[in-house]
Amino acid sequence: MDGYIIATVIKAILILAVISALAGFGTYIERKILAFIQRRLGPMHVGPFGVLQIAADGIKLFTKEDFIPSGANKIVFMVAPIITAATAFIALAAVPLLPEFTLFGIDVKPIVSDMNIGILFVIAMMGVGLYGPLLAGMAQENKWGIIGSARTAIQFLSYEVVTGLSLLAPIMMVGSLSLIDFNTYQAGGIGHWIVWTQPVAFILFLISGFAETNRTPFDLLENEAEVISGYATEYSGMRWGMFFIGEYANMITIGFLASLIFLGGFNPLWIIPGGLAIILKVAFFFFLMLWVRSAWPHIRPDQLMWLCWKVLMPLAVINILITGLVMMA
């Protein structure tokens, strides 16, 4: 029992440290890749190829004055960024990050809590995470903030249905909500990946994943051109940084979910060992998000609602119906 508690605490601290470091590194990668796609150089001056730009940004964020606007609701204003960052990491607790391995003679399961409803928990926690932007926008006395939180509400109500329904068809095939069961279901190599039998669900999940993480076709909450910075208008320093870390952690979570559910998870791939395989897959999804950001314009809120309710949701329902019919036949 004691060993279990200590192991869980160590795993939680490791995930917290590694993912927040990756989130910081993600900002550098994002700027660099965006720059290359747009034929620029990106950050170049701080350190070799601008790698130390992360450190410079970190120092700037930590030392910036943390002020609270006088008209704002102070408690909610201070709590809101913590919600976004905390829920992003809580969601990662139910995700198996790597295959099991042996370290100093101890079998290590790289998952904090192996619950049998893993998918539901991750989706629910990421949903709760949107309370961060919502409360932030409402707590600051700022019109851009209110618009940002109104957009948060409609975005949440639009994509959440699509996420749930698109995942239902793979869940029906596997017959379990545990992410580890999804992984073992696809153990037979590339031919057994769920993406081949559920391509529609895969695309729907990716689209709603982009909406979930506020990535570019759906970055309505903080679109600079329209609403200054939306919910984050009045934030500065580390409070703003926590929104940022939460967003990047969510991007990594969506990458893990997509590769675990649809792309074979951490099963060994040809000559690539399983641990490296899933990291490559997550890196691919991370790159895909940046690629889409540089290639696509963002859409209007009413277009998002139209897309989610009138196109994606009927598609997801039809997909579930067909899956059910095929499974019964």
């Binding site: 928990f121 989706i123 629910a124 949903g127 309370y131 949440f156 959440e160």
Partner: peptide, 9 residues
């Protein structure tokens, strides 16, 4: 979690 987070939103 799923139901109430959506409903309160």
């Amino acid at each position: 979690l799923v139901v109430y987070s959506g409903a309160i939103m």
